[in-house]
């Protein structure tokens, strides 16, 4: 099988240019959903086609790529996307957060703080935060254009009315730079504070929905809430069973059929470094 048939990073240069234009517009208007002509990728929709296209468009031969899925480097989605770029771009890959220059992620932000030399690419299933409240895209676009976000607050109101607290625990809506309301992709709300004032560039790609949006470095990102029900970043009230960290986001793992369970870090790299003693 000849890998030479591919252009660098799979996409042709014309497509990359189109995607880069959308990214630049997204960075210029933080939180605004820029439409782009999403391509058919050699993986099904819902497997990160948006993130892959964004990564392909900004990847350079000198980059070191890390791919995580729910924080883990070794799950199917992460492994296959990493292999995809190893093969089509020949770039170096890593599992270490602080060695990577590009990180493509599904539903997590790494525990290790990001730096200004890094780009974080999110895979986004549904870019429109009001999708399930207002099905008309024409209307949601008007709401964004006029910053008429009462409806977004209704979603949180409904949460409190039904559950006694804001029960949205992932894809928690945020307001970007005091203007656009944005869906941060299904990251746990524990990660929301990491969006704010982040030194790294954060890019969001939704392949099926054909939207790209972005957060430039050091953008103010505020999680929506009520005065009497303020936003709280929550996690399971345990320490990691492997590395003992009490501050990282935990996955609950069922260990047997008798109700046995353990809590472990969802960020595998952070957990491994922490277990070795010092990340």
């Amino acid at each position: 099988m000849s890998d030479q048939a591919y252009n660098f990073a799979y996409l042709d240069e014309g497509t990359k240019r189109m995607i880069r234009r959308a990214i630049l517009k997204g960075i210029a208007v933080p939180g605004y959903q820029v439409p782009f002509a999403s391509r058919e990728m050699p993986m099904p929709y819902g497997w990160g086609t948006g993130g892959v296209q964004v990564t392909a468009a900004v990847l350079t031969p000198g980059d070191v790529l890390k791919v995580i899925d729910q924080g883990a480097d070794d799950t199917t989605n992460a492994v296959s996307i990493r292999k995809f770029f190893q093969r089509t771009a020949g770039v170096a890959t890593t599992e270490r957060t602080n060695e990577a220059t590009m990180i493509q992620t599904r539903h997590r932000i790494p525990e290790t703080p990001l730096t200004g030399d890094q780009i974080l690419v999110y895979q986004v299933p549904i870019p429109e935060p009001m999708r399930f409240l207002e099905p008309r895209e024409t209307e949601t676009r008007r709401i964004h254009a006029l910053a008429d976000y009462g409806l977004m607050q209704v979603r949180l109101y409904e949460d409190i009315a039904r559950h006694g607290e804001i029960a949205t625990s992932y894809a928690y809506p945020v307001e970007v730079a005091g203007r656009y309301v944005m869906d941060p992709s299904p990251i746990p709300k524990f990660d929301n504070p990491k969006l704010d004032d982040c030194p790294a560039i954060q890019l969001f790609g939704a392949g099926r929905e054909q939207r790209i949006y972005a957060l430039p470095p050091y953008t103010h990102v505020r999680s929506l809430d009520f005065e009497d029900h303020p936003f709280t970043a929550s996690k399971a009230d345990h320490a990691c069973a492997i590395c003992g960290s009490g501050t990282s986001y935990l996955d609950e793992v069922i260990t047997d059929d008798a109700g046995g369970r353990m809590f472990v870090c969802s960020d595998t790299d952070y957990c491994a470094q922490n277990a070795k003693g010092g990340a």
């Binding site: 399930f132 409240l133 209704v154 409190i160 009520f226 009497d228």
Partner: peptide
């Protein structure tokens, strides 16, 4: 798809009300 309370409260929230109680 929104509760009666949410329906009535929407205008208030659109007008900037941010106190659930």
């Amino acid at each position: 798809g929104v509760s009666a309370g949410g329906n009535v409260g929407e205008r208030l929230m659109a007008g900037g009300a941010r106190h659930y109680g």
